[in-house]
């Protein structure tokens, strides 16, 4: 009788632990998908910031002192000629700088012919597609008015695309 009672108690305790285990596992797994997407967003943000502040993209001291999150579009448009040299260097499949304001009526990709009357600068990597996100940056260039040069800074978003880790 006593052995029977102990056995029942053991079964009950084991069942209880199993149920607790299932509950814990379910709780953990339900949050995993959210964690993955948050981590990807965070990676994209950090990568975009790192790229924006790299010597090849950043404004440096060219625009009235040092600026944070500032991209020199004159530099970037020149960088397009060296896309192949920089293959795989940025850690992203592709980099897109999209001018947000002022708004252009039609999306126009920049090249040396239409710059600066365009709103998208693409730096293509070797692989296309994947996860894409980015961060706000100031997009500065040298403009001229009546023969005088001045700094023209606009609002843009630097978007990076990279392959998802499966």
């Amino acid at each position: 009788m006593k052995i029977q009672q102990t056995a029942f108690l053991l079964i009950a305790v084991t069942l209880f632990f199993v149920l607790v285990g299932i509950f814990v596992l379910g709780f953990r797994l339900s949050g995993l998908r959210g964690d993955v997407s948050a981590l990807e967003e965070k990676n994209a943000l950090l990568l975009a910031t790192r790229i924006a502040n790299s010597p090849e993209f950043s404004c440096g001291n060219s625009y009235d002192g040092e600026r944070l999150n500032c991209v020199d579009s004159d530099k970037v448009i020149s960088l397009k000629d060296f896309e192949e040299t920089y293959q795989g260097f940025w850690g992203a499949s592709s980099i897109e700088i999209r001018k947000l304001y002022p708004i252009l009526s039609v999306d126009t990709e920049c090249n040396s012919g239409n710059y600066p009357n365009c709103n998208i600068i693409n730096i293509r990597g070797e692989e296309q597609g994947g996860f894409s996100d980015g961060n706000f940056v100031t997009l500065c260039r040298k403009a001229s008015k009546d023969g005088d040069s001045y700094d023209k800074c606009e609002l843009a978003k630097l978007l990076v695309t990279y392959q998802k880790v499966e």
């Binding site: 944070l68 999150n69 500032c70 700094d151 609002l155």
Partner: peptide, 11 residues
């Protein structure tokens, strides 16, 4: 933060 920093530097 990035938005505010960038927007305030708009010419």
């Amino acid at each position: 933060e990035s938005f505010l920093q960038s927007a305030l530097q708009y010419t």
